[in-house]
Amino acid sequence: MYDIAVIGGGPAGLSAAVQARARGKSVLVVSGDRRDNALYKTPQIDNYLGFWGITGQELLDRFHAHAAEAGAEEKEGRVLNIMPMGDTFYLSIGSDMEQARAVVLATGVVRANKYPGEEAFLGRGVSYCATCDGMLYRGKEVAVIGKAADAPQEANYLQELGCKVTYVSDKAPEHLRTDIPFVKAPRPEILGEQAVTGLRAGSVTIPCEGVFILRSSMAPADLLPGLALEEGYIRVDRNMATSVPGVFAAGDCAGLPLQVSKAVGEGLVAGLRAAEYVDQITNQKG
């Protein structure tokens, strides 16, 4: 059981982690591949105080090093859902489960537009986790929709399991096995009746029984049902508290402007307030 789970390894999430550790709280930071972070891809930053002329990758590496030095634990993976039960939040991370007393959402901007057929066939052929569900499709045709930097590795894993994989993405993948066919398509459509029967990718129809949609992270509203949004962003107050008690949000997912300085500042507030929340519920029990 962690005091605080931080979802997202960008400026907001790592700032929250550092502040929570300064208050003596145990912290788990869950994030995907760093290459998916928007900051990582920025060639030069000139408006972050004290660090002008630095690349986004260098700045992000410094943030991660600081959080690690502060004692925050990091776990690479995708949080698939968050389940509040009493004073505890259960986080499903791939096939693993972690627990925390409070949560900070720092997912960045996650586009929630679903593919045609995605919602209708969720649990009936549509999956978000190769590790969790791959064995169910051993010996079967599956399609991987790659929207994350590590998606080719996940596709390779499915192929090694014995699945017959076709990789679909809007750009050519790196490090994909040569025996996995690649189809370029910007917005595929999932086909089926009672369950998935295929994937339409541009002019190509791929027969398959499973579709693995591998995004860098889940949209906040899909992670935590009941989370209030405002104009597509998570609604927060000045304490970065969301509509769900014990859940805080910071950074790009909490609204404009989408800037590193704003994310770091909001992360500080979210980390401090999450620590205070943990103290409050701990004192109530005591």
Rank of each mutant, 00 (worst) to 15 (best):
P225K: 09
E209H: 11
Y277V: 00
V165D: 03
L49G: 06
N113P: 00
V260R: 03
S15Q: 05
T42S: 12
I180R: 01
A275C: 01
S261W: 08
R124E: 12
M135F: 10
P181Q: 04
K75V: 10
G108F: 01
D150K: 04
A250T: 09
A102H: 11
R215I: 11
E141M: 05
I206N: 12
R101T: 02
L80V: 02
V211Q: 01
K285M: 14
A22D: 13
L256D: 01
S216M: 09
A68R: 03
L136A: 15
R273C: 14
D36T: 01
D222A: 14
E73N: 07
K285Q: 13
P188I: 13
Q259G: 09
L122G: 08
A195Q: 15
E118H: 07
T131K: 04
G123C: 01
A20V: 02
G265N: 13
V30L: 14
F212C: 13
P188G: 15
V126M: 01
Q44T: 13
L258F: 07
A72V: 03
D133V: 06
P188W: 06
D279K: 08
S169Q: 12
N47D: 11
I281F: 00
A100D: 04
V264G: 06
T42G: 08
V27W: 11
C129F: 12
P11W: 09
F182H: 11
D252G: 12
I213N: 04
A112W: 13
R35L: 00
L256G: 07
D61S: 10
F51R: 11
I145R: 05
Y167I: 11
V211T: 02
L229V: 05
V244K: 00
Y115S: 10
Y157A: 02
E193F: 02
L224E: 13
L80M: 02
T42L: 07
V109N: 11
I213V: 15
F121C: 04
L268P: 02
Q19S: 11
G226Q: 12
A5W: 00
L229S: 04
E73D: 08
G192S: 10
G77N: 01
Q259Y: 12
Y90P: 10
V260Q: 05
K164N: 15
E118I: 08
L268H: 08
K164T: 09
R62G: 10
M1T: 07
G255W: 06
K25N: 03
I180W: 04
F248A: 10
V18S: 05
D170F: 07
T197L: 02
L136C: 14
A68K: 11
M83D: 15
A195W: 06
C163F: 14
L256K: 08
R101C: 05
R200F: 02
A100V: 05
C208S: 04
P43D: 12
S243C: 08
